[in-house]
Computed example of a mutant assay.
Amino acid sequence: MSKSEQYHLYFLVSTREDGSQNPYVESDRDNTGSTINSEISSFISLLGPKLTDGVIFEIYSCNPFTSINNGYSVEGSFEETVEIFSPPPRAVFNNGGSDVVIPVQDFIDILYEWKNFLLSLPYKHSLSNR
């Protein structure tokens, strides 16, 4: 099982009426109908390979594994942000109420999986140049 699937995130492609195909992230719903980890999917959904690399670089640049961070903010899609804290190194997404907290390494793994998914698509898509 991939790291993204462990967090109920799935990388898919939709086909528009004009035939263009666009990658997107979907997440499961819990038994109340609420989307699980929608904050994570919203954060990465419009990141192309270059922007994903930029986010990964920015996370590593704040040294979350070796220094103390008190809320270093990194911006993603739709002006969504994640705050990086340590120790322990963790990514914190705020959904307007309770925080969604995952280990930083899990978040980095998800970002790499997203980038690899985008690069594996055999055609140019809406995120190719992002």
Score class of each variant (00 low, 15 high):
Phe57Pro: 00
Ile40Asn: 05
Arg130Leu: 09
Ile59Gly: 02
Glu75Tyr: 11
Ser128Leu: 15
Asn22Val: 08
Tyr72Asn: 06
Phe85Ala: 03
Ile108Lys: 00
Thr52Met: 05
Pro103Tyr: 07
Arg130Met: 14
Trp114Gly: 02
Pro87Thr: 13
Glu113Arg: 01
Phe43Ser: 04
Asn22Pro: 03
Ser2Trp: 14
Lys50Tyr: 07
Glu5Met: 11
Gly71Ile: 13
Ala91Gly: 02
Leu111Ser: 07
Ile102Val: 09
Ser45Lys: 12
Leu119Arg: 05
Ser73Gly: 04
Ser34Val: 14
Pro88Ser: 14
Gly96Phe: 10
Ser34Phe: 10
Thr35Asp: 08
Ser120Asp: 07
Phe117His: 04
Phe85Val: 02
Ser120Ile: 02
Ile44Pro: 00
Arg16Pro: 01
Val13Gln: 09
Ile108Met: 04
Asn31Glu: 15
Phe107Thr: 08
Val25Thr: 04
Phe85Gly: 01
Val104Lys: 06
Leu9Gly: 00
Val100Gly: 01
Leu118Val: 08
Ser42His: 14
Ser126Asn: 10
Gly48Arg: 05
Glu113His: 04
Asp106Leu: 06
Ile44Gly: 00
Ile59Tyr: 01
Asp30Ala: 10
Phe85Met: 06
Cys62Ser: 04
Ser42Tyr: 14
Arg29Asn: 14
Lys115Pro: 02
Val82Asp: 04
Gln21Arg: 11
Pro87Tyr: 13
Glu83Thr: 14
Ser77Asn: 05
Ser34Trp: 08
Asn37Met: 08
Ser61Thr: 14
Gly54Lys: 10
Val25Tyr: 11
Thr32Asn: 12
Ser73Ala: 13
Ser98Cys: 08
Thr66Tyr: 06
Asn95Phe: 10
Asp28Cys: 11
Pro87Arg: 09
Pro122Leu: 06
Lys3Pro: 00
Ser98Arg: 15
Val25His: 08
Asn129Gln: 07
Gln21Asn: 04
Asp18His: 05
Glu79Cys: 05
Asn69Pro: 07
Ser120Cys: 02
Gln105Tyr: 09
Ser14Thr: 13
Leu12Trp: 14
Leu9Met: 13
Ile36Tyr: 04
Asp28Thr: 12
Ser98Glu: 15
Ser128Pro: 04
Thr52Trp: 03
Pro23Val: 11
Asp99Gln: 09
Pro49Ala: 13
Ile44Gln: 00
Asp18Tyr: 10
Lys115His: 01
Thr52Val: 12
His125Leu: 01
Ile59Phe: 02
Gly33Glu: 15
Gly33Ala: 11
Ser20Trp: 10
Ser34Asn: 14
Arg90Cys: 04
Pro88Glu: 14
Asn129Leu: 10
Ala91Tyr: 00
Leu111Ile: 13
Ser42Gln: 15
Gly54Cys: 08
Ile84Val: 03
Ile40Asp: 00
Asp30Tyr: 10
Ile102Glu: 03
Glu17His: 11
Asn94Trp: 11
Glu75Asn: 05
Asn94Pro: 01
His8Glu: 15
Thr66Ala: 12
Thr52Cys: 05
Leu46Lys: 10
Val25Pro: 04
Phe107Cys: 01
Ile36Phe: 01
Val104Gln: 06
Val25Leu: 07
Val82Arg: 01
Gly54Asn: 09
Gly19His: 10
Asn94Glu: 04
Pro49Tyr: 12
Phe11Pro: 00
Phe93Met: 01
Cys62Val: 12
Lys124His: 11
His125Arg: 03
Ser61Val: 06
Glu17Trp: 08
Ile40Trp: 00
Leu9Gln: 08
Trp114Thr: 00
Thr35Gly: 03
Ser61Asp: 15
Asp99His: 03
Gly97Asn: 15
Pro122Gln: 05
Ser128Lys: 06
Val104Trp: 13
Ser67Trp: 07
Tyr123Trp: 11
